[in-house]
Computed example of a mutant assay.
Amino acid sequence: MPDALATAVTNTNPNSCVNVQTDRLCKPWQVSPAGVAFTEAWEQFRAHLYDNDGAGGGGNTTIGFGHFVHTGPISGATSEALFLNGITVAQAHELMRHDLTDPQRIVNQRIHIPLYQYEYDALVDFVYNLRHHNQGLLNLVNTGHYDRVPAKFMEYTLAGGAHPSGLVKRRRAEANLFRDGNYDASH
C-alpha cells in the first residue's frame, strides 16, 4: 500500500471540500547543496584529465568530479583542449552543477508524486550515475510505494559483468539517503 499523503474525515455532503497537506515537496524540484556534495563525494575530485573511470572500466576521458569529456581514453581530441592545464576545485563544482542539470530534468519529468528533498537528491544521484536503464526504479517511485524503493536501488549494482564494491556501496548509500535522509557518502 502506498504511503498515504494525508487522511481526512468529511461529512456526507458531496460538494464538501477537503484541504490536504504533506511534508513532501511538489514540483519543481532542485537538487540541494547537500545533494550536490553527496554526488561529488562519490565522484572524487581530479584536477587533471583521466580515463580510468573505476567500476565499469569504461575508460572514458573525465575530469573534476566525474565530468565526462568524451568517450574513450585520453587522445588529444579537441574536447580535451579546454582542460589540458587542469581545473580548480571551484571549476569542478561549477561543472558538477551543470552536469546535474540533465538528471534533474529527467527526475522532474518522470516522477509524478511528491518527494522529500532527500528522496529527490537520491534519485538525482542515481540518474546522474546511471543515465540509461533507470526506468524500473523511477516507475516504482511513481507507484507511491516509497518503502520499496531502497531495495530497488540494490538491483542496479552490475557493471562490466561484476558487482564492484564501490558501486554496491554507492547504491546502498543512495538507498539510505532515499529512506532516511542520511547524506553519508563515506566509502
Rank of each mutant, 00 (worst) to 15 (best):
L84S: 12
F45H: 06
Q104I: 04
G64Q: 02
G72I: 00
L138R: 07
V20Y: 02
E155M: 14
F45C: 10
H187Y: 15
N13G: 01
Q21S: 12
E40S: 06
L177W: 00
R179I: 03
L140G: 10
P33R: 15
L140F: 06
L49I: 08
A55P: 00
G166W: 12
A6S: 13
H67R: 14
L158K: 09
I74S: 05
W29T: 06
T12L: 09
H132I: 13
S32A: 01
G58Q: 14
G166H: 10
L82I: 06
Y128E: 04
Q21P: 05
P114I: 11
F45I: 03
T71H: 09
V36E: 04
F65Q: 02
N11Q: 08
E174W: 03
R179Y: 05
A173P: 08
G64A: 08
L82Y: 13
A8T: 01
Q30I: 09
I63V: 14
Q30H: 07
D3G: 07
N176W: 03
R131Q: 12
A77S: 12
T143D: 11
G72F: 04
H187K: 07
A41C: 14
G160W: 01
E94H: 14
L95I: 07
M154D: 15
N182L: 04
V20T: 14
E119N: 02
L84P: 00
G136P: 09
A37L: 13
E80Q: 03
G64N: 04
D102P: 01
P14F: 00
A162V: 09
T78G: 07
Y120N: 06
A6D: 14
D125M: 07
L140Y: 05
G136V: 15
P2K: 15
H70E: 04
G58K: 13
D102K: 01
V149Y: 03
M96A: 11
L5H: 13
L49T: 01
V89H: 09
A47I: 09
A6N: 12
R105C: 02
F178P: 04
V124C: 00
R148V: 11
L167T: 08
A47E: 08
H132D: 15
L100K: 00
A92N: 12
A185C: 06
R148Y: 10
N134W: 00
Y128H: 14
